[in-house]
Design a protein around this nucleic acid. Structure first.
Lengths: 132, 132
DNA sequence: CCGTATCCTCGAAGATACTG
DNA sequence: CAGTATCTTCGAGGATACGG
């Protein structure tokens, strides 16, 4: 799931980046956040997630769920019914994380249009520079 | 820089994930956070970053700097001296983002050991399951 | 319903060499 | 000092088919 699994040698900046790296990696996966959000609101079933998260494949859904479970962010409960029913719910740890993710989301919402504008401006300027 | 540049069709979950995706992507780059942190503390020069961020290549340093600048998170100031001097400093937008990143970092620090323990436990259990 | 297994694509990131 | 230009590698994620 991660591009940064290698142990980084500690260094002035990397040493303090180390815990950061862990969070970023946990959150950087293409689907982790969507799943985390869904599961934090209420326990969700596998198929529910598959339906609600547009574009996710079964493979990635399972993979991401496993990783989140492995890190203690989700708990997986199997109901031995027929047909089988599996529910994923956020742990306390994940709920705490969720609060901080919300902070990021709100930041994104506030700066959304600025960022787009900055990009356009930047691209226009550097388009012009290339032409000159 | 992004694996998710494709425009996602809106959907119940994706619609609200859209701003999230933007933040995550901006932060998900392997080096963005390290650079953002360094530049938020004080304006930094190119070579300073290269020295302080262990393992980063010139290529990725430049690329990440350009992307952050493009999104209006960093400003690039060239001093027309000899030898040339270029300083990168965080914008207000980036400083706001930084505050939220700190939230994540603190979460990571608090749960660091739990996560490692969860992983070991998970791996042990699933090692056993595979052997059985 | 809830997955696993296999093959493949594609782009992020590394290595290396050169420049205003 | 502060970059750019190529070439390459490597693994995240997609597509598809099968299984308890």
């Amino acid at each position: 799931m991660s591009r940064r699994e290698q142990v980084l040698p500690d260094s002035p900046l990397q040493a303090e980046a180390c815990p950061i790296v862990q969070v970023i990696d946990r959150v950087a996966g293409k689907w982790s956040v969507s799943i985390l959000i869904a599961a934090t609101k209420a326990p969700v079933r596998y198929t529910e997630l598959e339906r609600n998260i547009t574009g996710i494949s079964r493979r990635m859904l399972t993979l991401t769920l496993r990783n989140l479970e492995r890190d203690g962010l989700l708990t997986r409960t199997v109901y031995p019914t027929v047909p089988p029913k599996v529910e994923y719910s956020a742990t306390d740890s994940a709920r705490e994380l969720y609060d901080h993710l919300v902070g990021l989301v709100e930041w994104a919402e506030r700066h959304q249009t600025d960022i787009i504008q900055c990009r356009n401006e930047y691209d226009r300027e550097h388009q012009a520079a290339a032409a000159a």
